[in-house]
Amino acid sequence: MTSFKTASVNASTLLVPREGLVWLENAAPRPHWSKPFLINHKITTAIDRAHRERESEGREILRDQIESENSDLRADVRKFWMSEYRFLENILSMEQLVTYAPGFLALARNMPKKQVYCRRLVVNKFLDTHEIEMNQFTIKLRNQFVRSSVILYPTSKLFIAARKFIDLANRSADQSVQTNRWRIIMMVRSMHMMTDNEICSFFCREDDYFRELSLLTELVRKFRIECVEIFKVSGEEINRFWVPAKQSTEN
C-alpha cells in the first residue's frame, strides 16, 4: 500500500540493480541509435564524459591498433578513414567500438571514399522525404546519424535504421524540463515493470544496464522525482508512451 511517506521518497530508491539477472555471454552492446529517446542535459553529458575518461586507456590502445592495421593504406585513404574513426569515437562507447572495429577495418579496405559520400547523399535525401521536427538539437543528431549510419549499417539495413532514427529524433526534439521529466518517469516505471528477461533483452549487456541505472539515478535526483509519481503511471500510459518506438521497429 502506498503511504504518505512514499510520496516524499526520491525515486532513486527504485533504481537498485536486480539480482539474479541472466545475461547472454558475449552479447553485442546495444546499438548507438537504438535508444528510445535522448535527453540533452548537462548530467547526461557529464556522465558520458566520465565513462569516456574511465575508458581512455582502452580507447587509446584500440585506436593505435586501428591505425596500425591501416598503416599500409594510401596516405589520403588512411587519413580519411582515421577521421571517420575519430568521429565514431565521439559517439560510441568502448564496447561498441570494439564490436564494430573488424567491420570498420573491412570498410576501410573495400569501400571507396566516393561511395561513402554517395551513401550520405542518399540518406540525406531519404530523411528529407520524412517529417522531422528540426531544432538545434535534432539538426546535430541528424548530422551525426548521416555521417555514422553509412558506415555502421549495411545497405540492407540502412533505411530501416533511418526510419528508426526519424522516430528517435521526433521523440527527442522537445527538450523542455517538463517533457524530459516525463520521459524519466516513464523510463523508471517501464524498468520497474519489466520482467528479468525483458531487462536483459532491452539492455543486451550488464554494463549497459548499470549505466542506465547510474544515469537515471542522477536524473531523478536532479528533477526531484518521487516514488509516488512513478507508481501513479498506469500500464496504459506505458503502452501509449512506447507505441511510436514499437511502430518504428516494425517498419
Score class of each variant (00 low, 15 high):
96 Q>V: 07
165 F>S: 03
125 K>I: 04
135 N>P: 06
1 M>C: 05
80 F>S: 06
31 P>K: 06
28 A>F: 09
132 I>D: 05
193 M>K: 15
165 F>W: 07
54 R>A: 08
189 R>V: 02
85 Y>W: 15
101 A>L: 06
118 C>L: 15
165 F>C: 07
50 A>Q: 13
118 C>Y: 05
152 L>D: 01
249 T>C: 09
139 I>N: 13
225 I>K: 04
104 F>P: 02
131 E>F: 13
48 D>Q: 14
208 D>W: 01
30 R>W: 10
247 Q>M: 14
165 F>Y: 12
11 A>C: 01
60 E>I: 08
25 E>A: 14
34 S>M: 08
165 F>Q: 06
239 N>F: 15
132 I>G: 05
75 A>D: 10
79 K>C: 12
47 I>K: 09
213 L>T: 04
14 L>A: 00
142 R>N: 06
127 L>Q: 07
214 S>C: 08
30 R>K: 14
94 M>F: 10
57 E>C: 04
186 M>L: 09
172 S>E: 00
124 N>W: 07
76 D>F: 10
142 R>M: 11
80 F>D: 02
194 M>L: 04
128 D>H: 15
113 K>R: 11
107 L>H: 00
238 I>N: 01
237 E>S: 14
241 F>E: 05
223 F>A: 06
41 H>D: 15
166 I>F: 01
227 C>L: 12
216 L>A: 03
55 E>I: 01
15 L>Y: 07
